[in-house]
Design a binder for these strands. Sequence first.
DNA 1: GCATCCGTTGGGGGA
DNA 2: TTCCCCCAACGGATG
Length: 646
Amino acid sequence: MPKPRVIYWFRTDLRLHDSPALKAALDLDPECLYPIWTWDPHYVYRARVGPNRFQFLLDCQNDLSASLTRLNPKSKLFVIREAPQTLFPKLFKAWRISHLVFEKDTDAYARERDEKIMELAKEAGVKVIVRTGRTLYDPDELVRANGGKPTMSITQVQQAGKKLGAIPRPIPAPTSIPDPGDTSLDFEQARPSQEPDYNAIQRDSADRSYSALAGPNGDFAVPSLSELGLKPATTPHRGGETLALQALDIIIADTDYTATFSKPLTAPTAFSPQSTTLLSPHHHFGSLSCRLLYWRAQDTVNSYKKGAASTPPTSLTGQLLFRDMYFGAQAALGYSFGQTVTNPHCRFIPWHLPSRIDPSTNLITGTYDIDSPQAEEHLRRWREGITGFPWIDGLMRQLKTEGWIHHLGRHAVASFLTRGGCYIDWERGAEVFEEWLIDHEAACNIGNWQWLACVAFYSQFHRIYSPIAFPKKWDKAGMFVRRYVPELERFDEKYIYEPWKAPVVDQKRWGCLVRGREGGVEGEFRVYPKPMFEFKERRDVCLKAMKKAYKVGLYGNDPRVLDGSWRALFDDEAEGPTEGREGPIGAMVGDGEAEHEEDVGDDEAPPAYAKSHMSPESPKSTRSRAGQKRGADQTTLDGIFKRLKS
DNA sequence: GCATCCGTTGGGGGA
DNA sequence: TTCCCCCAACGGATG
């Protein structure tokens, strides 16, 4: 009996420690082990990924590759530049592979991809081994233990978790690995189409991702940012298992911090150092096992003064339970989890800037309707950090440049964009976070936006974050704002969260005028914009609108959401695109009576459904944003697979 | 089935 | 400064 020839396929598990899947591969006692990464065009072109997250990924890959080489000088992480769906059949043959091993991934796209790969493996006579290690529990088992329903509360996770038994203890990293076999690539590369390239806006030079199967030097090396044509990263946060384990050691060494950690008590305004662990990007890329953190935190709690330690959900382990909750919701709901339409667990609210829906799949298209030019302006200013509210702007600028903001900061900006300010669709906000966060985890991002928008997981919409009162509670002196909105650094703390109230003579004395909408420089003075609306006023408008939407009580899977008849249930006076009787969310169909103009806002020919209600005074107000498009899903559409209608 | 309690992270006012 | 209640009210969990 010949020994197995094994491919270990790294994906979101870029580590050697606590990897049940890697252990399973090594337990096969292989003749050769190929640790590989497939440079998937789905991630490169069809997901929203800014340079900061790309850099974190490359950091993780470089670190892992070096660690593999330390275990065996002949080995490394072999990066192969082709879509896995086309690569694997050729690779199985060329390297005479007997086994394929990888860690389970329940992301909507990953599931489809892996099903396809398992099919291809079967055809090639290759055995596939899959192990769970990305979450505390296997999300599918968690859902099963929850009665087959998505986990929508932390209690459900705890109850279902009990039925599944103890969370597995971490397993040590291997101390040796077998040689890779012959690595010649005796086949043609299937180059993916770069179109559509949703990350075109992230590049300042040509992308050379697919220059050759084994890279420009034929050595399977991890690419560099510049090779990918990406703009330089600006984040100070770096990736890799080595750094992750060091960071974990430092956290656990502080017994009091670890054992008494209570999330709601950590300051969102702290930045040097930040008040939470900043381990989330490592969990996303797998450079840190969540089970390792879980057990090191739990062991610390167990040996701490009795009764003095914090407990879930606020404790460190509680944070990981929330992560599992979102994975469980996503595992049960699939693509519909990432959108309102078709989602039975997501409330329907007639937000501004609603997503467009592809009528052939009922999935979001990545474009949206501009029902209100003012809302579009609000979104742009929120994104760019020039809303005129220093707390919001500081957070958005920190997010853009550093790729990470504190959880409560995410609450502040999300509440502001959706139910507590702009009344803009939470899906718009989730897209911006997807692009900029280095710790972007589709399930958690989507879940948290639904939570904050009060469409799922949470419903106390009266609790609205004030961009003035809330940060004052944590940072009366405004140190955070001074750091991230430097034009205001000399303002008196009396005005730091409301600079527009400062007398002009003081504004001049402090070197910054508060005027206009864009900020910038004016002569010898810097300029910071005026607030883009009266917050209290918007707060009341949103509150009233949320109350109405809750009373109407529609969920995303209601036929009236899709066919547009929801409009009849809302007042014309209500906030959001509710006026008129025609044109549902995404603006599909209609009875043909209403007059439409052809939508001409897209680069590509708009599909027939891309018509929607036009208000008389602004006939083009519903033109879709002529920006990037993307496939519909939590990260995007691959184009290779056809999705079933939900 | 129904009442009650409580929910990781609101704001504001008064004692 | 800290605690408490109220605002007006949701909905899952619990008994």
